[in-house]
Amino acid sequence: MGNISTKPVYLEDKLAEIKSDGKLEYRSKALPTWCPGCGYFSISEGVTSALNNLAIKPKDTVVVSGIGCSSRFPFFVNTYGFHTLHGRTLPVATGVKTANDDLTVIAVGGDGDGFAIGGGHLSHVARRNVNITYILFDNGIYGLTKGQTSPTSSLGFTTSTTPYENHDRPLNPLMMMLSFGSSWVGQGYAGDPGHLGEMIEQAIAHRGFSYLHILSPCVTFDKTDKTYGNLNMQVKPIPDDHDSSDLMAAIAMAQNVHKPPLGLYYKEDRPTLADGLDEITQQSGGGKNVVTAKAAE
């Protein structure tokens, strides 16, 4: 986190390194319009690095989003993107993935989009194990509509719609997703871009529904709660001895909302939606899956 060494850094060396690296290919031309300082920049950096490291071509990637600050994301990456309706991200992403297995589909959205208006969809996409990655940008507030409370806003948090403090207990998305049956659940933090990049890479690499929860401050509307300053003091890495195949251990760890552990909580390999559909195709005695056939050519 930051260069605390006094050893000089030389710009031309750094630029050469970045250029040869290839990451810039995943960026769009347009500069992101998020507020300066927004944690989403960190996520954007992480996603582009991850795709680059995994050598997934931009043309084979689709990013689907709903409504909200985070849902601007597809505009800032150089991939196929789909900016849909508020809360309806996951059904659209399911449709895209079901139509073409060869695509890497990444659904992105914020805490309001995913856990408020779109909350009904979460459980279903998780239990079906659609082979997509869902990256949840959690800033605990509605940024686009200028600062109302969200399902992950802390107790006691004051917003324009909870001027006398928020009395609604915040959701525990990690526990929800673990209990809904996500086959990959992890947590990252925008203030630690290095670690975040690694987590995104793992989430995309996972075969099945992967849910990555990212703590990301809203620098414009949250000056008191989930700020960089506060989160820096709270987050900690997952202990080395955590067994990521142990669901109960993962759920236990997800309880620690005051010192949120960062890293991989749970990972399980099991058939995806597409596997099931293929199975049904076979069971019904039908022909070869059209999607797979296309890919085979």
């Binding site: 260069n3 000089p8 850094v9 300066p36 300082g37 290095g194």
Partner: peptide, 25 residues
């Protein structure tokens, strides 16, 4: 100086800069 490895390109610094002193290069 900016440690490019730790930079997330968020431009928070450019926002507060009093002159044209921080640049996208």
């Amino acid at each position: 100086s900016i440690d490019v490895d730790g930079c997330i390109y968020c431009r928070a610094c450019i926002e507060v800069a009093p002159r044209n002193c921080i640049k996208l290069v």
